[in-house]
Design a protein around this nucleic acid. Structure first.
Lengths: 199, 199
DNA sequence: AATTTCGGACTGAACGTTCATTCCGTATGA
DNA sequence: TCATACGGAATGAACGTTCAGTCCGAAATT
């Protein structure tokens, strides 16, 4: 996914144009949005002919969906914490928060892309199923916390909205240049978020 | 703004097509987005010829900006609380939260429109200045709370991100059909939000 | 009162542009 | 020689915008 990957084809080493296209599309979609990005622009940035894109992707819609699924899965894996026996939920939350911030700051384009396309009408059934699957996993986590009487006894969907709302708005303000994100401030945000959901 | 307003012209009562156009555009932009809405579609919904739109608005961009400014100001006025002497900040927050929810639920299209277009590249200088002005007023409120040691001693921009993040994500989940918004749940969300920002 | 003229709101076909997608000639390696 | 990869001009649909003409109430004229 870094545009310089190679693949072996018939014993020959070849630049993988498919990766170039995906990387160029990621950056352009994140910056300009789906409708604001012409296919010819993606081709130019990836240094391929526009026809070449259609050798690798059925159409523009399949391209954006492939990107979406890939990065959605990536971020889900990135925030996953290997669960240790008896780990307090507060600690689990802290670890997850940390990973989430790390991912967003180290993969700005991917994170921006995901946020901007999360509700796009061009997302297909498969992408939406992935969304719901991951959403469900997080819900289950909050349900556990509720049962353990650590988290407020309210609808887990609301808990979820609180956490994702705080996080995404924080990142948005950061990228808009209105808010610095020092380790101290990141911790303050985490603390505030926890205060919102803890019992 | 309800598409049935009338204006008097030369002693004669006439349907105000300008209002029809604004209302049609509001609904379509909210539902389909700016790029997803063809001008001809707005014309059809407003029952006017597409040329008529250009009698009232310079172009599509001016139309979306006019809508944005109007509703941004409307919501700002709608949530404003007449401040009574010695009113606790917690009460002020409660009143504001209530008004905000009321506005969003009673003006779904307008609220969705504002959220969806808040960062659109077609917003002009005037619209962005209105944004910053209103943003600044809210920041000042949180600054007062901080000085009074009622609200956490952290960057007001972060406080702001927390409150708007929770609210907008809550409304999103509501309109997606994932979350009911009973008075009880609305209060739980308000309470959680306050927990996040109180000292 | 009846008829004509006038102004401008209004329409929608037409225009030029942009875009996603296709097509085909060329290049490359087997 | 053949098959495949590739580039980019060509294609046609869709879009925002324009403009020549239509329509209609009001004013002017008879």
């Amino acid at each position: 996914m870094n545009g310089r990957l190679k693949s072996v084809f018939g014993g020959r080493i070849v630049l993988d144009k498919r990766e170039d296209i995906l990387q160029a599309a990621l950056e352009l979609f994140a910056e300009r949005g789906y409708y604001g990005t012409a296919v010819s622009l993606i081709a130019e940035k990836a240094r391929v002919g526009s026809g070449t894109i259609y050798r690798y992707f059925q159409d523009k819609e399949q391209l954006v969906n492939e990107l979406y699924r890939y990065w959605k899965t990536e971020v889900a894996n990135a925030v996953k914490v290997e669960y240790a026996e008896n780990m307090p939920l507060r600690t689990l939350f802290h670890e997850t928060w940390k990973r989430w911030v790390d991912f967003a700051m180290n993969n700005r384009e991917a994170y921006s892309f995901l946020v901007a396309h999360h509700h796009g009408p061009y997302l297909d059934k498969v992408s939406m199923e992935i969304n719901e699957k991951i959403h469900g996993e997080y819900l289950a986590f909050f349900e556990v916390g509720r049962q353990a009487q650590v988290i407020k006894d309210i609808n887990p969907e609301l808990i979820m909205a609180i956490v994702t709302g705080i996080f995404s708005e924080m990142m948005r303000e950061y990228w808009a240049g209105h808010l610095q994100l020092t380790p101290e401030i990141i911790e303050q945000a985490e603390e505030a978020c926890w205060h919102a959901i803890r019992r």
